[in-house]
Design a protein around this nucleic acid. Sequence first.
RNA 1: UGGCCGAUGGUGUAAUGGUAACACAGGACAUUUUGGUUGUCUUAUUCAGGGUUCGAGUCCUUGUCGGCCAACCA
Length: 558
Amino acid sequence: MTTEEKKEEKALNFIEEIVEEDIRAGKHAGRVLTRFPPEPNGYLHIGHAKSICLNFGLANRYGGGTNLRFDDTNPVTEDTEYVESIKYDVRWLGFNWVNELYASDYFEQLYAFAVDLIKKGLAYVDDSTAEEIAALKGTPTEPGTNSPYRNRSVEENLDLFERMRRGEFAEGSRVLRAKVDMASPNMHLRDPLMYRIKFAHHHRTGDAWCIYPMYDFAHGQSDSIETITHSICTLEFIPHRPLYDWFIEKLDIFPSRQYEFARLNLTYTVMSKRKLLQLVNEKHVSGWNDPRMPTISGMRRRGYTPESIRNFCDRIGVAKRENLIDVGLLEFFVREDLNKKAQRRMVVLDPLKVVITNFPEGQTEVCYSENNPEEPATGSREVPFTRELYIEREDFMENPPKKYFRLAPGQQVRLKSAYIITCDEVLKDANGDVTEVHCSYVENSKSGQDTSGINVKGTLHWVSATQAVPVEIRLYDRLFKVEDPSSEEGDFKTYINSDSLEVITGYAEPALQGTEPDESFQFLRKGYFCADIDSSPDKPVFNRTVTLRDTWAKNAAK
RNA sequence: UGGCCGAUGGUGUAAUGGUAACACAGGACAUUUUGGUUGUCUUAUUCAGGGUUCGAGUCCUUGUCGGCCAACCA
């Protein structure tokens, strides 16, 4: 079955249904234009990826386009550093926007819209303090009270607003408000603020402006200016929609429409930029791109692929129900993708020395191991077999439980792509800890030319102790100890998992030397690992993306 | 106590008045020179009550539970 057919079979989400209905009805002549509107005040995270896949996916599917629009109306928190990272991340995810735009491009137009509303008697300058405005706003159960400045003349409002722009008034001394309805049960309709005074340097307009539009008077208007047909945002903006429509109607501009879907929540992490910024600022992580972060940049560094993230976003669907998705689903998709793509290598993370007593000292025998059994075309590589080897400490047990298929006294195992060995002797130190295991290899059991007829249950990964390359390995675990840190009592940071990073030295087969950053491998039986940007040719550093599925560990834990 | 949104397996998402489906997670078996991969099987009377209908997860109604809304943030 082709991808095309699969796509058609898949049920539509409710937004796709709306779009199809609009197309059927001939709305906007069947044109579809969406936008992805990040505020450049932080890095993109997996929740944004859901929105990106939705917006760009919709445009893709219905022959439209998507604008990348930076919602940069609050100069004090925004920065070009964020702009650059956002652009990089969207491209990396595999999407191309038709226009790179900024709400700040529209400041002059937005100002003209505001003047228009003032002239229509639908906006006024309010001299009240923030506290006074809040006090007159009422509560969800009590109506608000009109501001004493609500009935200024059009002329006075025009004059005051112009002088606000000229910088004649102090920050916080005046605002422009829409004249809607102070008694509305919808708080957002109680004369919402349109403009505030901020003597702040803007990352794009510099010091050209000292008044900046609020979200509600910038977002919808930007949509309209760009003739966005479907403006998709998250659930918390539902109460803003009547205001979104009010401005468009009163301004009599292009009728963009807003639709809302439920944001993504993932177990064992947090998904708000405010919280993520705290983790960065307070050094709980090394930065926005710390591999434990749910940011796109963090996941990229961790070893996640764009495909795996897109597949994930595809599978979780789009609806209006609050959700908390098991991070295991994300892990499934990265395993699925890396299983096809990542070459196999052998690396011992916690070494136990094995001496093959019947193998000559100083001799090296070349073995060949397939690079990826899922992709035979990737061929095989040489792996040196010597008298002294390392195996994983957990792959040996002196007194093994039932169904332990690994090495134990008197037991036989296969060394992957090499020989079957028999455990003859266990050496211990004064504490009784195992220091070394002596084995003998079965000479006619070499992989590919095995005539021994021996059937072993277990196959172990291994490296030559004398030719192994030490590598730094960073083992990551979930950032939080509880499923939903944000819903727990108190500060979410009290639930940080202090053991979320463990740095160890592993011993890699020689083929792993000189690995380039960003390259992903499957370390046999251990998981997927991605070379970190901290790697240098002489000292590779690997991040563990995710472990392999481990049914043995699961059973043993029971 | 106001307004708005929502409720389908453990988790998500479908079913558009006509046999509750798919994925993940869990369980069982088989395959496997990765306890990986792969394959087969398996896990729900749809929040509750009432109503409309030949027939309701779907429509109506009442209730319950959850979420959002009173930043000069977005």
